[in-house]
Amino acid sequence: MLRYILKRLLIMCITLWIIVTLTFVLMISIPGSPFNSDQSSNETVQANLEKFYNLDEPYYIQYFQYIKSVILFDFGPSIKQPNQTVNDLLGRGFPISFELGLITIIVAVISGIILGVIAALRHNGFVDYLAMGVAVFGISIPNFILATLLIQQLAVNAEWFPVATWSSPKHMVLPVLALATGPMAIIARLTRSTMLEVLTQDYIKMARAKGLSPWKIIFKHALRNALMPVVTIMGTLLAGILTGTFVIEQIFAIPGMGKYFVESINHRDYPVIMGTTVFYSVFLIMMLFLVDIAYGILDPRIKVHQKEGE
């Protein structure tokens, strides 16, 4: 297990290094200086930037300085928002985005698993078709279109929910719904198909031959094995939800990191783009790592496989 963790850690570090290097290469390859083109930045900002990025030094020094600042978690000043650093923006925006993402993932996982299990148990029945219909819908409709539809139907027309912002649980319903539908659909489909496969396994037949009750068979024997693949796609789903927040926060005017990120792209606020990208990459890669570890704990075969590999 330790060896497994160390191996994953090493790969994680290389991936992070690639991201950091990539952002650096992109920064220096932007035609002209990214910080002084036609942008109407004032002189203090300009001076701050040049100081932070050591723009008068050779590239390799700039590179090492950049890596150093990334390790120290310092992403420098913003161009467009004077007197604000990227860290200020992250500190303000990320907790809100994190809250949105966390609620979304909880909703998506719970409803997706329930939907998938029910569909599998009622295989080829009405409930199965209904659940899979919902799932196909969820996968097909892009979240920004769903968000717009929800606002128009449930907020503007029906006035059940507020149109925008993030101030009370009622405000959270529509953004979470818009963001969770896609991942929920993916989880539901995956749970259903693995559940169906697991239910044909010999150990399920064996459990039935032992005379166990259906509930015990489902929860003790089937679900645990059926959820393994769901755990493996959690990393991808998290990435999807995270990029989804860019769109959803923009549409619902939620003052999270995603909104700042989209604005920084529109204004070509390079330090914010780079800083957020690096920050989110670190976050996601760490999540992937945790998912891997969780998988190793859930599936006893992994541990031993690693031991045998020694």
Binding site: M12, L22, T243, S281, L284, I285
Partner: peptide
């Protein structure tokens, strides 16, 4: 595979 696709 660890690189966040859309961010890249």
């Amino acid at each position: 595979y660890g690189l966040p696709y859309l961010l890249v």
